[in-house]
């Protein structure tokens, strides 16, 4: 019966179509406008990997096995988070044309932009799978545990959506949230186990894997993609908790501040 109701809703509503249409256009605007095109979506993480590889493997001689893949999976998750939060702070300003003339629900603007980012993410994830399984020498190959990445990504999506809602609505009343968030992001970047060994990270910052909502997602992604393990469910529940809490806060902000976007921006 529930499926029937959902089917009817999809048939009579154009909401899903619209989300997909907006996401496709957003994606196209971001990548096909540039000379490098979609290549840039791939080039960015590869260049990041090179930098950290040289710094941590070549110079600092870290002993993490399969270090390039270790960085790869951490960075694509991190980049999605940064693009979807810092990259969307001004979304109510740039996408003003969508809500200025009609009573379209603003949440659709957020979801479609994050969907566009998701296309980029899955493209990179496919590249990671190819790299890890066919090029990386320390690979353990495909595992059924790999599928957990979808659940982890949903967690990341909700977390990013919540953060994006909060930041972009604060932007309406305080423009310099952009700079503040940029500083906070780099702080968070160095407090996430993106290039540290997990044991070193845990030793130096005990229980910080529970304090930092993005750290747990990265830790779990490595467990399921590279170690053939199940995700750490306790950590996962914590991270979903963070994500839903921030999403709830985001909705509060959208209702309180977002309704004034058209006149304040």
């Amino acid at each position: 019966m529930i499926i029937g109701i959902v089917k009817d809703w999809i048939k009579s509503s154009n909401k899903l179509e619209r989300l997909w249409l907006l996401a496709k256009i957003e994606f196209k605007l971001r990548y096909y406008e540039n000379k490098l095109g979609l290549l840039w979506a791939l080039l960015k993480p590869i260049m990041d990997i090179c930098i950290y590889y040289i710094a941590f493997k070549v110079i600092m001689k870290t002993d993490i096995p399969a270090f390039a893949s270790f960085l790869f999976v951490g960075l694509i998750l991190w980049n999605f988070f940064v693009e979807s939060t810092g990259g969307t702070i001004q979304i109510l300003n740039t996408k003003k044309y969508l809500y200025e003339y009609s009573n379209m629900n603003k949440i659709e603007i957020y979801i479609s932009t994050l969907l566009a980012n998701s296309i980029g993410f899955f493209f990179n994830l496919a590249m990671f799978l190819i790299f890890y399984n066919f090029i990386e020498s320390d690979s353990i190959g495909f595992q059924s545990q790999n599928l957990w990445i979808i659940v982890l990504f949903i967690n990341l999506f909700i977390l990013s959506l919540g953060m994006s809602l909060i930041l972009s609505n604060i932007y309406i009343i305080a423009k310099d949230i952009t700079q503040i968030w940029a500083v906070f992001t780099s702080f968070l970047f160095f407090l996430s186990p993106i290039f540290y060994k997990l044991s070193t990270f845990k030793e130096a910052l005990p229980s910080f894997d529970y304090g930092n909502p993005i750290a747990g997602i990265i830790i779990n992604a490595r467990r399921v993609m590279m170690q053939g393990l199940e995700p750490d469910f306790r950590l996962m529940i914590f991270d979903f908790g963070y994500a839903f809490f921030l999403l709830f806060l985001g909705f509060v902000f959208l209702n309180k501040l977002g309704s004034k976007a058209a006149e304040k921006l």
């Binding site: 154009n14 179509e17 249409l21 256009i25």
Partner: peptide, 11 residues
């Protein structure tokens, strides 16, 4: 496409 979709039309 965007405007018409916002106005509630299907593709």
């Amino acid at each position: 496409y965007v405007s018409a979709s916002v106005l509630g039309l299907k593709i």
